[in-house]
Amino acid sequence: MNRPILIGLAVLLSLIVIILPVAAIFTRAFAEGVSVWAQAVTEPETLAAIRLTILTALIVLPVNIVFGLCAAWAIARFRFPGRRALLVVIEIPFAISPIVAGLCFLLIYGAYGPVGSALQPYGIQLMFNLTGIVLVSLFVTCPFVVREVLPVLSVAGEDEERAALTLGANGWQIFRLVTFPNITWALVYGAILATARAIGEFGAVSVVSGAIRGQTMTLPLQIELLYNDYNTTGAFAAATVLALLALLTLVLRALISITHPATGAKP
């Protein structure tokens, strides 16, 4: 009795809130034909924005992997003062609104902030450029890898590592041959989530980017700019690129959840 109603509601809600809007982006973007879409996407400013977004994601990715692995390892394997605090601190970026995060960075690393003003005499500027965008993207994405890797690492336990130690393995061999193979897919999954977030981040980046056309505009910022310029075709065309990048990460996630169901990736 209740089942069809519940299922119907769920389907209706997904249709209204998720499927229709995404479909609308594509229909609107291609409304004037593929050639108009292609022209809009290859606008120099839009191309620059795509390039900057991908560049940012590529810089953030390795930092996230290394930081996430180190933090997860430390929390899972060592008992040290402040361990619980570290767990909470790593979650902060999830709790704080991205725009607030952006403002925090501006306050500290901006020209009038303690760090920013100290660096200014040396000609080093951290905000309103690629550095600023990368920094806030790191802030927003740093919990993902830790959150995926930590549970797997905790379950994997120490016994395998201790066994490897008694068999004569050094720290690096233990990590490479014993620990890493157990967490590889959780790591990849966390990295994909982080990358998806880095590509789509708007709020925090908008505060620190400085919005210099063709230079510090990431793809989400560029879409908003085009839309505010009444260039709807350009905005929707650029939006399709962002949506496709997001869909790509979705497909990767699904693939991992099918091939490696134990990683915590849910289909």
Binding site: D159, E160, R162, A163, A164, T166, L167, V178, P181, N182
Partner: peptide, 13 residues
């Protein structure tokens, strides 16, 4: 020293 653990601790992969 060769050690056999209670959980065996075999490398599962």
């Amino acid at each position: 020293f060769g050690m056999v653990f209670q959980s065996y601790a075999l490398f599962r992969h």
